[in-house]
Design a protein around this nucleic acid. Structure first.
Lengths: 166, 166
DNA sequence: TTATGTTATGTTATATAATAACATGTTGGA
DNA sequence: TCCAACATGTTATTATATAACATAACATAA
């Protein structure tokens, strides 16, 4: 059997990689984390995470529901939203507000404020670590207790930027 | 007649100020800008901006619609969304994705990537300038052409942070 | 002035996203 | 075994946003 290589732009860069190994890696991480923290990794939760990590692209709740339906699961809206709440709360998945969609975390297990760069041409999304950009260099924010941050940067990725000098 | 002082946390800090002067200031700026750029500052557009700058708090489209209705304007959803599109496009108003709401810009006329700090206790929102935090210090983002950014920071503002040392 | 293109406003209907409220199932101890 | 906590399931509804189309206002060229 030939090894199928799913090439996608994900993770900490827009670089290519073998996405199957990547999937496995994050699924393993998740199983380990749930085990250690006595969280129930139920079939439904596992399935939703699997759906999200498959292509590692942002998916809306209703897209996820459609896939769940096709694959024999219940598919009323609260099913997806509840599982997504769980996955987001535990840090396995992030919500991308600007797209009303959800994406598997690229740095699971590693403390971070998630940030995303979104190419508006190819629609690929990459998660980047944002520690270096925080706290924002502003007097205002100095005394502000940051708990969560939503950083979504829209633009053109290198691959789509035809005008760039190669 | 007594001068009514509306005290609110807005602008580049969570500091107090006379919000009436502030309103006037931004309305003037807007008029000037529209004049110079031959943009039509119609009664509807003026009204929506006025609604947003009144208390300088984020308002949802349907909240704005309700106010428009009370004040004698048409109030079907596209009315608000279209005017908001205009105001956002011209930079007079920003959309806060995390709250599905809109807020008058605090740095109108000044080139900037907007960023917000949102206190989840008192719900006040402050806009801060974000130049200093961009581009994010990450190899990934180096080659990425940033066009737009959405930065929303959730936490506790100094006034609400009871635990802080005074 | 009239014709014409453009922009703004208006209406109805509908799409899309998210949650409330409540019922049933499952599981893991006291 | 019983109970408590959690997970899944259903129906209905709320909230957010847009499509599609109609009319009005306004500038400007014939």
């Amino acid at each position: 059997m030939k090894t199928k290589i799913n090439v996608n732009y994900i993770g900490s860069s827009f670089d290519r990689h073998n996405h199957e190994i990547c999937n496995e890696h994050y699924t393993n991480k998740m199983e380990k984390y749930c085990d250690e923290n006595s969280l129930k990794l139920t079939p439904l939760r596992r399935k939703v995470f699997e759906i999200l990590i498959r292509d590692h692209k942002p998916l809306g709740a209703y897209q996820i529901l459609a896939i769940l339906k096709k694959e024999g699961f219940a598919s009323s809206p609260p099913i997806a939203y509840r599982v997504l709440d769980f996955l987001v709360e535990k840090g396995f998945v992030h919500k991308i507000q600007g797209l009303n969609s959800f994406i598997a975390c690229s740095f699971a297990g590693c403390e971070h404020l998630p940030a995303f760069i979104i190419c508006r041409k190819c629609d690929n999304v990459a998660e980047i670590k944002s520690e270096n950009t925080f706290p924002p260099a502003s007097d205002t924010a100095l005394d502000f207790k940051i708990e969560e941050a939503m950083i979504e940067i829209l633009g053109i990725c290198p691959a789509c930027d035809v005008s760039r000098v190669i």
